[in-house]
Amino acid sequence: MSHQVLSTLAESQSLYLDPAIRDWVLIPIMVVMVLVGVLRDQITVLLGGGASTKKATLKAIRESKVLMRGAALRNYGNHIPPSSFLNRKNYLTNAYKKGDYLKNPASMNQTVNPMTDPQGMEMMMEGMKKNIAMIIPQTVIMGWINFFFSGFVLIKLPFPLTLRFKSMLQRGVETPDMDVTWVSSLSWYFLNLFGLRSIFTLLLGEDNAADGMREMTAMSQMTASPTGQPQDFHKLHLAESENLELTPHSWELNDIEHRLLSRYGKREQQKVIDSPENFIENNEKNAIEATSSSSEHKGKNRRKSGKH
């Protein structure tokens, strides 16, 4: 295999590059991108520490947390018996509709104006500040690379690409005949951008802010929904109450006696739930059997049915 591979090397080695390019462009760009990523992460940690000291009022926190309560009821409602579930459901839907948990119940039907609400403004500025702090280093580095390192071929890509990429990857060098595999420094920047993400996860642990991709997706989401930060909680509450009304409920512990007994081998697994009288009779019968059987027998049954 090494023979085949290296013969393709020989035919395509048509360009000889100065090692100075490697020393002064290839490695520095990579080093700069790694360092800037680490720097961004540390700065985000610093900034994040500052923002968390702002205190929110009790009513504002209650507004958002009560939505989580509704979501918890929807997700885990099957763990509690039907009566408890119905109690909570009715109470919460009534509270949502009457606006009991809103910060200022008087403004229930007005549309929220982000300019006048001071706390909403603060939240929006926070988010925008973070986004800008992320995007700026990327654009600065791209400008720096375009300014200083354009007009020459940097490296050969080991894999072939179609001709469409030629204009994008060979920005400064307009030669119509050259292989698409010879690329300029801008494409090396893009390659680094994608490739260093997992290295950052290695170096900085999870949830690091050196990731360019996450903010780009977050940016695109924010432009899609312009009423971002000062959310209209009344609408959210109403939506949550509708969701709650639609949730079905089936108690998971309904036949727990069945399941427990059949797991320990005291009772065959039945697909159909018996009628109440047979249920009680069967239970008594099995209970009598259980107490009279020897411990060996119990152990054997447990082992038989315990393997899942």
């Binding site: 090494s2 023979h3 290296l6 013969s7 090397l9 020989a10």
Partner: peptide, 11 residues
């Protein structure tokens, strides 16, 4: 010389 063969030790 055309680099046709890489010494097997390196591989």
């Amino acid at each position: 010389k055309i680099p046709n063969e890489m010494p097997i030790e390196i591989t």
